[in-house]
Design a protein around this nucleic acid. Structure first.
Lengths: 325, 325
DNA sequence: CCAAATTGTGAGAGCGCTCCCAACGCCACA
DNA sequence: TGTGGCGTTGGGAGCGCTCTCACAATTTGG
C-alpha cells in the first residue's frame, strides 16, 4: 500500500497475470528498496499451502546413516525441492515418535505433502495418511496398497542382471545375501536372483540364501554362514554388505574373485574403495530423491491428480570383484 | 466454542495456567472426540513462532555425505528437536542456492532459528544472519565472530592426545594429514598436532604436514605424498581420510602399525571396519547435534539470552593401528 | 457511436489462531 | 452489607497475507 497500491502487490509478488508491466516494475522496486519480504505463516494461512514438503526417514536401531542410501536420497530430494520454491522438512522417526510426529506435523498442515522412505512392508504411517487424504509418495513400491504414488528402481531386473553376469563369467554355485526380508526391496532383489537362476535352468538351493540386514556387520556374518556351502559366487543385495562379505572372505583366506566372485548392489561410493573394487548394480539414488519430489509436487499442486508411479532403471557396473570369466 | 467455551480452548491446548481442572478435562475430551488439531500456520501467524528450527548443511562438491559426520549430527539434532516439540527443516545448500534460501526461508520467518554447520572460515551466511538478528548457533567455533553461540569439540586437546599417544608408543617421525585449512576444524587439529610436538621438544617440519580434504581419496593422495618423508606415524584429521591413508600404505607395501602407525579422528563407524582397526579420537557427533539444538532453543525461547558456547570433550580410543610401543 | 467484452486495480472479507482486557463470579475482610 | 482481591472465563482485536468481487479504465464489435 505504501509505494503504489495494495493487493496488487500480492499479484506482483506471486507472478500472477493481469498486472501491467509498468506497475509491476514499480512495485518490485519499492519491494526491494524497503527490504520487504512476505511472511510465510500468513501466506500459508491465507493460501492454505505451506510450500513445505516433508521427508520421513526411518530410524530403526541406530545410525541408518552408515549406508549412504538415505543421505543421497535426501540430497536429491533437497535439490529438487528448493529448485521449485519449496522447503524440505526432515524427520527421522523411531516407532515411538511416529504418532506424535504424525499429529504435530501432518494434521496441523505444516506440510503440503510427504515422502515416505520406509521400505518396511507394513509401515504404520501409510493407513493414517491414506485415511486423512494427505498427499504422499513412497520411495519403494508398496505391494499392500494400490493407488499409492511411488517411485522405485527396477530391483528385479537389476538383480537378474547381476546373477546373469555371474553366470556369464562361468560361476556355477551362486549364493545370495539378501536384504531384510520384511522389506519390499529385500524381497524384490531375492526374487530377481531366483528368477535368473531358474531361467538358466538351475534349481534354487535354500542353503545358498542367507538373510542380511543392509549393514556391514550383517554382510560379514552372512558370508561366514555361507562359507560352509562353498559358493563360487555371491550376489549381495547391497554394497555395504558386500564390503562386509569381502572382510569375511579375506579372514577365511579366500581370494576375490579367484575363489569367490562378489557382486553388490547400489554402486555406492564404497564400491570403489574395496580391494578388489566391487562389480555392482548401480541404482540412481540421487535421482530417486528428485523423482519423489517431482511426483509429490504433482499430487500437491493439482488435487485431482491420479496416483502415479515411476520406475528408474538399474545398470550393471563391472569392476574387479567378479573376474572376467 | 463448540463443546464448552472458546479462547479457553487455546489455554488448554497450550497448557497455560488459570484453567480449572474441570474445564480442562472437558475440553480435552471434546478435542479428542472431534479429532481437532490446531493449524500450524495460524498458530505461527498469531504467535509469531513457527516452532521450526532449520539446519544448514554445506553441500560443497558432491556427496558430503560419504562422511558420516553430517548424518550423525542431523540425527542428534533431529532427535532433540522433536523431543521439544519442534520440527526440523533441513537445507543442503551450495553457494548459489544460499541467497535464495536465505530470503525464502529465513526472512520469511519460516523458521525460529538456524543451526549452521558450515565449518568454512568465511561462511557468507553469518553476516546476514547477524545483521538480521536471526537466532542461530554454529557447529564449530567461529573465530571471526565474537558474540555468536556455538558448540564445538575440543579439537585442540583431541589432536594433542592423538600425537602424544604416538609419542608414547615410541614413534619419532610423526606426520599429519590435515583437514582443509580454510576450515576452523582443520586448523584446530593442526594446531593441536603442532602444540603436542613442541611440548615434546620436537621441531615442526613442514614437509610432514600435508593438507587433505576430509575425503577418502584425499587421504590416500596425501599419504602418497608423505611416503617420501618416511614418517613412522601419521596423525590423520579424520577417519575417512585415515581409511584412504591405509589404502595408500597397503599399496606401497608398508605394514600398519609395524612400519607406520596411523591415528584417526572422529571414531566413525568406519574406524572399526579397517584392518587393522583404527586407533582414533572419538568426538561425540550425535551429542553435538543435540547440544546445538539445546543452545538454539535458549536463544529462540528467551530473546534476551546472551550468546553461549559449549565445548564437548574428545576421548582417545585405542585399537590396533598404532601398536603398543 | 454506444453497448459489450476485456483488461487493470482496490476494497473487504476471511484464513484459524493468540493475546489482551474486561467481566464475572466467589471468597474474605472490614 | 459493602468493597477489594483473586481465579476463571469470554469477547474482540489483530497477525499478514490471499482471494473474490466489484468497479474504473480501456479496447473491441456491430
Amino acid at each position: 500500500m505504501a509505494g503504489v497500491s495494495r493487493s496488487t502487490v500480492s499479484r506482483v509478488v506471486n507472478d500472477e497475470p493481469n498486472v501491467s508491466e509498468e506497475t509491476r516494475a514499480q512495485v518490485w522496486e519499492v519491494v526491494h528498496k524497503m527490504g520487504y519480504h512476505p511472511n510465510a505463516a500468513a501466506r500459508s494461512l491465507a493460501g492454505r499451502r505451506s510450500h513445505i514438503l516433508g521427508i520421513v526417514i526411518p530410524r530403526t536401531v541406530n545410525s541408518i546413516f552408515v549406508d549412504p542410501f538415505f543421505p543421497l536420497l535426501l540430497q536429491g530430494a533437497s535439490e529438487e525441492t528448493s529448485r521449485h520454491g519449496y522447503l524440505m522438512m526432515m524427520s527421522m522417526l523411531d516407532r515411538l515418535a511416529e504418532q506424535d510426529f504424525y499429529h504435530r506435523a501432518v494434521r496441523s498442515q505444516t506440510m503440503d505433502g510427504l515422502i515416505i522412505s520406509s521400505t518396511v512392508l507394513d509401515e504404520p504411517l501409510i493407513p493414517l495418511l491414506l485415511e486423512e487424504q494427505v498427499p504422499f509418495v513412497s520411495v519403494g513400491r508398496l505391494p499392500a496398497h494400490a493407488d499409492v504414488s511411488y517411485i522405485d528402481v527396477d530391483n528385479l531386473h537389476g538383480a537378474r542382471m547381476a546373477v546373469n553376469h555371474l553366470l556369464e563369467v562361468g560361476r556355477q554355485h551362486i549364493a545370495t545375501i539378501t536384504g531384510p526380508l520384511n522389506t519390499v526391496v529385500g524381497l524384490d532383489r531375492l526374487e530377481g536372483y531366483e528368477t535368473a537362476l531358474r531361467s538358466a535352468g538351475k534349481t534354487i538351493d535354500n542353503t545358498f540364501i542367507v538373510e542380511g540386514d543392509f549393514t556391514e556387520v550383517g554382510g560379514c556374518n552372512a558370508m561366514r554362514r555361507l562359507l560352509d556351502c562353498k559358493p563360487d559366487a555371491v550376489f549381495v543385495a547391497s554394497d555395504l554388505m558386500a564390503f562386509g562379505a569381502l572382510r569375511a572372505l579375506r579372514q577365511a583366506g579366500l581370494q576375490v574373485p579367484a575363489d569367490v566372485a562378489i557382486i553388490g548392489f547400489d554402486d555406492a561410493q564404497i564400491a570403489t574403495l574395496t580391494e578388489p573394487q566391487l562389480t555392482t548394480v548401480r541404482q540412481p539414488t540421487f535421482e530417486m530423491g528428485r523423482a519423489a519430489v517431482d511426483l509429490l509436487r504433482c499430487l500437491v499442486e493439482q488435487d485431482d491428480s491420479p496416483p502415479q508411479r515411476r520406475i528408474l532403471s538399474t545398470e550393471l557396473v563391472i569392476r574387479d570383484s567378479c573376474g572376467s570369466g
